[in-house]
Design a protein around this nucleic acid. Structure first.
Lengths: 162, 162
DNA sequence: TTGCTCCTCACGTCACGTGAGGTGGC
DNA sequence: TTGCTCCTCACGTCACGTGAGGTGGC
């Protein structure tokens, strides 16, 4: 027969690009199209518009619609509540991100500090040694040819842990 | 005349202690007493009870009632929204507190580290000087300021921008 | 034409606040 | 008794979802 085999394709689209007209977005979000128009009138969501004025919802819009759906249907919030909750969640998200970043940096700083102290301790020892009576340590250093003030590449065993 | 002069007194009470009966609490929160009973039935607030079963509202309860009042009357939230918002605000509060604490500790750590490095530098100098005749190495150091190994890693504050 | 879009208006339902009505103990 | 407490039931209002009704351009 002359039937074409259907090829499975997939289109990649930016999540913020308006691609769904209202009937499609409504179906994806499992809502009445009129409800979407109402949400827009209340400022809850702002779909793009085609040059002809047709609303165009992005994937991000659809996800937001589903979140709203969840809040109103399952938790029973009204739209004022949804608005407030969305704002608060965003704020919380930001705080959490900052917290994580700061924790990471803090841990890193601790590591660097430990390494630095170790380095200084060694260089201190190295600088003092030459004037002492000879010990094996001195001999090893001298054999290296490293002047004491140079950075000594040391393999630290403590940063392997993270 | 025999009129007693009225003495202004002030009683200090823990903010969590139940002290106001429902009519007083309602007046303080500018709400209908029945509304307070309704909020309790929905789990929004939990006043203490006297042994006889009379509700006793604390100062903290009254403040919470005013916050609820604000959310429902001024922002138009329903009670489901109020509940969710209260929970989120508490979470946000916790995150903010942790953030502040971590920032304080981080700054303190930076300071301590700088002080420590300074101490090490001094002790290094003190230990080196008695032993050394003046040598070129020492002089180079002095002219240079810090040898490369004594760089203090400084924490950057760049995530404040986001 | 059909089926979509746009819009406005109106109705049904439900949540919530509050009033009424009846009880009991200082 | 009065004035509070406790409780339940019921009604009015308002928000919200959705359907209807009419328009216009692929």
């Amino acid at each position: 027969m002359g039937m074409r085999r259907r090829t499975a394709t997939r289109v990649t689209v930016s999540v913020d690009r308006g691609v769904f007209m209202i009937s499609v977005a409504a179906e994806l979000a499992e809502m009445h199209p009129q409800t979407l128009r109402m949400y827009e009138a209340r400022g809850l969501i702002e779909p793009k518009r085609s040059p002809k004025g047709t609303r165009l919802y992005s994937q991000a819009d659809v996800e937001k619609l589903r979140r709203i759906q969840e809040m109103t249907n399952e938790l029973g919030l009204n739209l004022a509540g949804v608005e407030r909750v969305l704002a608060l969640e965003e704020e919380l998200e930001r705080a959490t991100r900052r917290l994580e970043a700061l924790e990471r940096r803090s841990a890193q700083m601790r590591e660097e500090m430990a390494a630095e102290m170790e380095r200084v301790r060694r260089s201190l020892k190295a600088e003092l040694v030459p004037y002492r009576h000879s010990t094996e340590i001195v001999r090893v250093r001298r054999a290296d040819g490293d002047p004491p003030s140079r950075r000594i590449p040391v393999e630290r065993d403590d940063d392997r842990s993270s």
